[in-house]
């Protein structure tokens, strides 16, 4: 026997409702419109494509919010809510007109803000990095045989000829002849985009999930800064001149 025998029955002595995360969630206007009590009928789960394959249940999401236990909410924000596919089947079938999908959406935003999403979103690091440094989120390079074990020989063969195919397909569009990103945006455009992220505070938010990506972006910006700022100056002068 271990040093302490755990009581298998959960004893409810004090209310666990009303913690910080619960309060943050209830502040969101979507919750009021998305939860009107729950009949526990299971219609949402029966229709839910995520529930069919993952450890996720829209009914549990509703019940969890109704119960409001802080620990459970935290656990959900770190894990289960990220399994929802946001298809909204639950909303359109629920006899109480609840919407677990909307609750999940609100919870995801709060999870990002509160720094609970890092582990659940770790799988998206490549995509996030690509967006932040290249301006688009997918690249032909991501579609490689090692990422898709179900590919047959033809797909593997085609995937080895990505560059040739793109060159043929996009003849005369040099920006498209890349495979490490969907298309090549100009350095200047990327710098502009990064600047917007930095100034609007979006980059800071990304930092709550992917802190190291912020460094990468900032380094990227620093490398280009001198050249780009000169270009901005040049453009400004041109604009001024055209006005006169």
């Amino acid at each position: 026997m271990s040093e302490e025998t755990k009581n298998p029955i959960t004893e409810k002595i004090e209310s666990t409702k009303g913690g910080h995360f619960y309060k943050e969630i209830m502040k969101d206007f979507r919750i009021k419109e998305s939860l009107h009590g729950c009949l526990n009928c299971g219609t949402c789960v029966a229709n839910c494509p995520a529930a069919a394959f993952y450890d996720y249940s829209p009914r549990e999401v509703c019940q969890m919010i109704i119960e409001g236990d802080e620990e459970t909410i935290e656990e959900y924000m770190k894990g289960k809510i990220w399994n929802c596919a946001q298809c909204y089947s639950c909303k359109y079938r629920c006899p109480k007109e609840n919407s677990a999908a909307d609750i999940v959406m609100a919870m995801r935003e709060i999870a990002v803000r509160e720094g609970l999403a890092a582990e659940a979103l770790a799988g998206y690091t490549r995509i996030a990095k690509l967006v932040l440094t290249r301006g688009n989120q997918l690249a032909p390079d991501m579609l490689s045989p090692d990422a898709f074990p179900d590919w047959g020989p033809r797909m593997i063969e085609l995937s080895s000829k990505k560059m040739e195919m793109r060159e043929e397909l996009f003849e005369g569009f040099p920006g498209m002849n890349v495979v490490d990103r969907a298309w090549a945006a100009e350095d200047y455009t990327i710098y502009e985009m990064q600047k917007i992220w930095e100034e609007s505070g979006a980059l800071e938010k990304v930092g709550t999930v992917f802190p190291f990506l912020v460094d990468i972006v900032q380094e990227d910006m620093e490398d280009k800064a001198e050249e780009m700022e000169a270009k901005i100056q040049e453009k400004k002068e041109k604009l001024e001149a055209s006005k006169k």
């Binding site: 009928c41 299971g42 529930a51």
Partner: peptide, 28 residues
């Protein structure tokens, strides 16, 4: 079975229903 019938489809010429066994927490 505790769980509301949610959907009916035709599968191999037979009716197939979807529901959740809410006591067991599993969609069926």
């Amino acid at each position: 079975t505790r769980g509301r019938g949610a959907e009916v489809t035709l599968k191999n010429q037979q009716l197939s229903l979807r529901a959740e066994e809410t006591v067991m927490n599993r969609p069926i």
